[in-house]
Simulated scan of single mutants.
Amino acid sequence: MEIAHRNHSQALFTYLRGLNRHEPQLAEDLLQETMLKAWRHRDSLPVEDERARRWLFTIARNITIDSVRSRKAKPAEVRLADAGDAAGGEFMDYTLSLQAMRAAFEQLSPMQRTVLHELYVEGRAADEVAVRLGVPVGTVKSRAFYALRAVRKAMA
């Protein structure tokens, strides 16, 4: 893995920057994800240098595609109006909604709250949250799905 990283990381980084509108931070994150996935499947790493390079580029492309899909799947973020901006009845609606949302979140399990916080407050992708929490990506997505469903039900 050290040899593969040394031989191909700069080319992978340049490739990932091009795929992501020259955003260096995103390219660095995706390069780390690529190398992490390659390390997890290092037994599949081809011995020949050119085949190893193609294998790593395929992983990088797939991770980039997953990242784009993940960002598109997230609902658009909306900012609640500041309490000071709301007037009259709007302030009361705002306050009641905020109380209902807090009550709904208190009913969630700690892991569901953590997943929602990581996804929607911290803005992390599901695969990144999975790595941070040490669980499969499917588990993160499942917890988020059921947590959002429970919040919607409690808010209805």
Results as ranks from 00 to 15, higher is better:
residue 8 H to W: 03
residue 22 H to L: 15
residue 62 N to S: 04
residue 75 P to F: 14
residue 121 V to R: 11
residue 94 Y to A: 15
residue 108 L to K: 02
residue 114 T to P: 02
residue 108 L to I: 06
residue 130 A to G: 07
residue 151 V to D: 05
residue 43 D to Q: 07
residue 10 Q to S: 15
residue 43 D to S: 06
residue 147 A to Y: 07
residue 6 R to Y: 12
residue 141 K to N: 07
residue 31 L to S: 04
residue 126 A to P: 00
residue 113 R to T: 01
residue 71 R to E: 09
residue 24 P to V: 06
residue 150 A to Q: 12
residue 155 M to E: 06
residue 138 G to I: 02
residue 134 G to M: 01
residue 7 N to C: 09
residue 77 E to F: 10
residue 74 K to P: 04
residue 48 E to H: 06
residue 39 W to H: 04
residue 96 L to Q: 13
residue 78 V to K: 15
residue 29 D to C: 08
residue 98 L to K: 15
residue 10 Q to I: 07
residue 17 R to G: 06
residue 143 R to V: 02
residue 118 E to K: 14
residue 5 H to A: 15
residue 15 Y to R: 01
residue 122 E to L: 12
residue 74 K to D: 15
residue 40 R to G: 08
residue 113 R to H: 02
residue 64 T to V: 03
residue 19 L to D: 03
residue 143 R to I: 02
residue 128 E to H: 10
residue 40 R to C: 01
residue 81 A to S: 13
residue 31 L to F: 02
residue 154 A to W: 08
residue 12 L to C: 06
residue 116 L to Y: 08
residue 69 R to E: 14
residue 78 V to I: 14
residue 132 R to D: 13
residue 148 L to R: 11
residue 106 E to K: 11
residue 45 L to A: 01
residue 26 L to M: 11
residue 119 L to Q: 01
residue 76 A to Y: 11
residue 76 A to T: 15
residue 8 H to K: 01
residue 127 D to Y: 07
residue 71 R to A: 10
residue 83 A to L: 15
residue 14 T to E: 09
residue 115 V to W: 07
residue 30 L to E: 01
residue 21 R to S: 15
residue 100 A to I: 04
residue 95 T to Y: 12
residue 66 D to S: 10
residue 125 A to R: 10
residue 66 D to N: 08
residue 88 G to M: 11
residue 32 Q to R: 09
residue 147 A to G: 10
residue 18 G to W: 00
residue 67 S to I: 00
residue 87 A to L: 12
residue 63 I to N: 07
residue 144 A to W: 04
residue 121 V to H: 13
residue 121 V to L: 13
residue 50 E to Y: 10
residue 153 K to P: 04
residue 130 A to S: 07
residue 73 A to L: 08
residue 62 N to W: 00
residue 50 E to K: 11
residue 95 T to R: 13
residue 137 V to L: 06
residue 105 F to C: 15
residue 38 A to L: 06
residue 49 D to E: 15
residue 10 Q to V: 11
residue 2 E to C: 05
residue 112 Q to Y: 05
residue 106 E to D: 14
residue 97 S to H: 15
residue 114 T to A: 10
residue 12 L to E: 01
residue 82 D to H: 14
residue 69 R to P: 01
residue 69 R to C: 14
residue 3 I to M: 13
residue 38 A to K: 01
residue 106 E to I: 04
residue 55 W to M: 02
residue 16 L to C: 02
residue 97 S to E: 15
residue 108 L to R: 04
residue 25 Q to A: 15
residue 21 R to I: 05
residue 54 R to P: 01
residue 79 R to I: 11
residue 27 A to W: 01
residue 13 F to S: 02
residue 123 G to R: 00
residue 73 A to D: 09
residue 84 G to F: 11
residue 26 L to S: 04
